[in-house]
């Protein structure tokens, strides 16, 4: 009787262990890693709050100047006080977090898609195709991207979230292309790719159905870690004064108020919450990324 139960349990385990797909392995790793699990929870809660709350915020009203409540410290009216234009910090914080995350997310996504396409094509076909594509990558890499971004920001007539995403994506795909190319070069030497060729499978199908799934864990890990960095990039550029205009609040615009020594010393409510939020978001994403990275490498897995 007991043996039977053990038996069925084993069967169950065997069935379960079948799901060795990239996603279930990653999910298991996150469940095993308490820090990553907590990060995922916090980040999820944060994003739901931010994206949910911004639905109810009237942005036009938020950015209109209210001279009667300039620099008011946190109160019941303004939970996190106001800035030099009397504008509510909490509202700006929520919209800013949404903008910053959206920007980071789409930069990561677009740069990821370009880098992946270029890298996997160059790596798979090799030879002349590889040579040609990698020269383009080299060219983009040696461009002084920061300078070009700054020039673009200064001369662009309509400068908003979309143009910002566009200009950043143009420069940020190259590293990914290189990474994916080197992984693809290794992968295409494996016999399952040769087998697919001898079985009459066309190249594009081999790339998408055979090689890509075997790179999925590396891609996910890389994108996650990049996401943290890309959220930071927006804040950094805005802080330097080359980011989004004040009419489009972001975490960067709030933090950049701290360039004023008076605000930095005496009006903590303006810049501290935004800085804290950036820190929390980046840490959470990084912890999740670390767990995913371990999941992608069987030797480092916890579970």
């Amino acid at each position: 009787m007991k043996a039977e139960i053990v038996q069925t349990n084993n069967n169950f385990n065997i069935k379960k262990s079948k799901s060795s797909g990239a996603f279930s392995v990653m999910w298991r790793e996150i469940l095993k890693d308490k820090l990553a699990l907590a990060s995922l929870f916090i980040l999820g809660l944060l994003l739901i709050t931010v994206y949910g709350a911004t639905l109810f915020i009237n942005q036009d009203k938020l950015v209109t100047v209210d001279l009667l409540s300039i620099y008011s410290p946190p109160s019941a009216d303004h939970l996190l006080g106001t800035d030099y234009g009397g504008r509510d910090i909490l509202g700006q914080l929520l919209i800013g977090a949404k903008n910053s995350f959206t920007i980071g997310f789409f930069i990561t996504l677009i740069a990821g898609i370009i880098g992946l396409t270029v890298g996997i094509t160059a790596g798979y076909f090799g030879g002349k195709v590889d040579n040609f594509m990698m020269r383009i990558v080299d060219f983009v890499m040696i461009l002084p991207s920061l300078m070009l971004i700054i020039v673009f920001v200064t001369i662009a007539p309509k400068y908003n979230v979309y143009t910002f995403i566009f200009i950043m994506s143009i420069f940020l795909w190259t590293g990914k292309a290189r990474l994916i190319r080197s992984k693809t070069l290794a992968e295409r030497e494996l016999d399952y790719v040769n087998a697919s060729k001898t079985l009459g499978t066309p190249d594009w199908k081999i790339i998408i159905r055979e090689v890509l799934p075997n790179l999925s864990s590396i891609i996910i890990v890389n994108l996650t870690l990049n996401l943290a960095g890309n959220i930071g990039i927006e804040s950094g550029l805005t802080y330097l004064g080359f980011g989004l205009p004040e009419t489009t609040p972001s975490l960067g615009t709030l933090v950049s108020y701290a360039t004023n020594p008076d605000i930095l010393q005496n009006k903590w409510w303006i810049w501290l919450p935004a800085s804290f939020l950036i820190l929390v978001m980046m840490l959470c994403i990084n912890f999740i990324g670390q767990a995913l990275r371990r999941a992608a490498d069987a030797r480092q897995r916890l579970g």
């Binding site: 016999d191 040769n194 001898t198 079985l199 009459g200 055979e210 075997n214």
Partner: peptide, 20 residues
């Protein structure tokens, strides 16, 4: 001619796609 000529590979580990 693909159908007429086939191959059995040396390494049974790398010749099957682990994800399929």
């Amino acid at each position: 001619y693909r159908r007429d000529i086939q191959m059995i590979f040396q390494d049974p580990y790398s010749s099957l796609n682990p994800r399929k």
